[in-house]
């Protein structure tokens, strides 16, 4: 539970950094969602792989991270739909959790 709360807070702070701090720096602001979405996807991968199979914090984190991205990132590729990133990240997390992890083993997985 603690790990989940920390990861949610981390996503929230990262997204706020993305929309309020990084736009000042030319290199870090290619687009509205920019590279942060990829960092978050990577973190979701990490969370999903690193947690125990019976835990669901990876999926919950993915849902909230996607939701935060939806709230703060505006439209992406012309799609203005609240829930777009929530879906994308949820599907990624579900895919890792229930399909990929069943067949692939990484050293970091517990």
């Amino acid at each position: 539970m603690r790990k989940l709360l920390i990861s949610l807070l981390l996503f929230y702070i990262l997204i706020l950094l993305q929309v309020s701090f990084l736009p000042h720096f030319f290199l870090f602001s290619w687009s509205s969602i920019s590279n942060l979405a990829f960092i978050i996807i990577f973190l979701i991968f990490y969370l999903c792989f690193s947690e125990r199979p019976e835990k669901n914090s990876g999926i919950i984190s993915a849902l909230f991270a996607g939701f935060f991205l939806d709230i703060f990132s505006g439209n992406f590729l012309g799609i203005d739909f609240l829930g777009f990133w929530t879906f994308i990240l949820a599907i990624i997390a579900i895919f890792i959790k229930f399909f990929l992890r069943r067949y692939v083993r990484f050293p970091l997985a517990q």
């Binding site: 702070i13 706020l16 950094l17 929309v19 309020s20 701090f21 990084l22 736009p23 000042h24 720096f25």
Partner: peptide, 11 residues
């Protein structure tokens, strides 16, 4: 409030 702080810091 957090965004304002980040914005000022980034600026």
């Amino acid at each position: 409030p957090i965004q304002k702080t980040f914005w000022a810091a980034g600026d």
